[in-house]
Amino acid sequence: MSYYDLDAILTGAEKIPCTFQLDVPELGYLDNNPGYTLKSGTKVLLPLWLAEMLAIADMGDHQNPDKSFIAFDLPPAVGKDVMAALKADPRSVPIRNQSPNFYNLAKHMMDLAEERELHAVVRKTFLTRAADISLHARKSGGAVSKGEGSNLGIGAAGEEFLRGLDEWERILFRKAHDGARSTKQWIEGIKKRY
């Protein structure tokens, strides 16, 4: 997670459902109501970078120090439905459709809210899918040297799975694929040496 990490920056733009805990004058345009006060209790979608700040910032209210500017819910991408589906079968969910930066988003939400179950499910999802990614990465390179199309022996289901990878998983796929490919290249080139 570097300052220059594009994926981290893009994750900051993910929308989080938030509920304002106080009235904010002149902020009505966030709720399609320009010029008016944003009432306490209004639900708006805020980008992650802003929601994060508002959720953890101290209001300076000494009577109830736990109160913050906003209360946030889990975004639908890491919501109950998706988690239930992932728990049932991590492989069958195209998590890219939920969010291109699914794991980054999940990580931020876990840091903000202590969700033990969310953590367990996301971790299991990542590991289960990683094993599959490695398999696909190995197979999809295999046919290239023979001059045929890729994805030999994987078929439509494999392509479907690969299309559903989020950014982390794409990087992982690339790493696994590069490793398998360079080994293959070495084996093929060994005849020519010496």
Binding site: K107, M110, A176
Partner: peptide, 20 residues
């Protein structure tokens, strides 16, 4: 040599997810 990058990627992912 073949699997190093992949395995390190997996471990790094798990570490990042579990950092909190």
């Amino acid at each position: 040599a073949d699997n190093r990058a992949f395995l390190l990627g997996v471990i790094d992912g798990v570490r990042t997810l579990g950092a909190g």
